[in-house]
Nucleic acid binder design. Sequence first.
DNA 1: CCTATTTGTTAGTGAAGCATACAATCGAGC
DNA 2: GCTCGATTGTATGCTTCACTAACAAATAGG
Lengths: 153, 153
Amino acid sequence: MAQPALIESKDGAGQGPASLDSVLGFHIRLAHGAVYRHFSETFATLGLTQKQVSTLWLVAEMPGIAQSELGNRLRMDRATAMSIVSRMQERGYLWRERCPSDGRKQLLHLTDEGRNALDQAKTCIEEHERWLKSRFTSDEVKKLVEMLARIHE
Amino acid sequence: MAQPALIESKDGAGQGPASLDSVLGFHIRLAHGAVYRHFSETFATLGLTQKQVSTLWLVAEMPGIAQSELGNRLRMDRATAMSIVSRMQERGYLWRERCPSDGRKQLLHLTDEGRNALDQAKTCIEEHERWLKSRFTSDEVKKLVEMLARIHE
DNA sequence: CCTATTTGTTAGTGAAGCATACAATCGAGC
DNA sequence: GCTCGATTGTATGCTTCACTAACAAATAGG
């Protein structure tokens, strides 16, 4: 009654999301920002970034992984992977080996120093993950991981 | 039987996450990257970034919002908000008004051109959101938004 | 009035993503 | 064996963004 004859006022009629707060991408951005900030604080003393830790971790999981494959798994293009791997090499955390069967590829390996740094990083990650997961039940965490994986395939 | 006497092998015993893939923060980063990339493609023609669209949108929702308040809501510090607002002003999308009751604050308003750009942006966002939400049921979307909000408060 | 806080502004640093161009290597087909 | 196209790494430069530090102006509270 109080409503005038606005028959198109239903949701989904075609006028888009009502408020910024209902935009899923917006929340993903904010959540990522919060995670990024806490991560940076946690890792300030170690002087490592998320990408760098992910790189060390992945090389530790798959020794001899090619630089291109690392880029694929971490969703970085070649140039980005290049700069990160180079920085990690400058610090002495990993070394490159020319692939004997395919001269184009550079195979990546951790140094002892790199393994050391990763071990330290892992304890920081545990703390970071505890902080992050403390808002959820373990079922929710599982669901959340699964849904996020659906986004990045 | 096949297992040797490794009594500490249970999960959560204290040796941290088993693989990179089980780290929640890692998935948030990858998901954000995927969303960011698709967003950038969608908005390439408009020449707007996520932050810029969010800024325009928020100013449209709350005309006269102070720059600091905008920063709070979008989780940007003053310097970042400054650079984004300045760029939007240079393009003629918004203008600043010195607050009459508090001379420190700059109140933000959209120009007609800004409203126009936002309208275009909103149709792009609809497409972007369709792409993003197509992997979920509407219940899942609701749950996901709610969980992400718990992360960024 | 003095002081601390808030807000905006400017400048500089660093990580990261992306585009481009180039070189080396490999593989397929002729 | 050779050319052609694709893959991989490398180097360079541009842009966005977050953060820091310093500074100025205005405000609020004693």
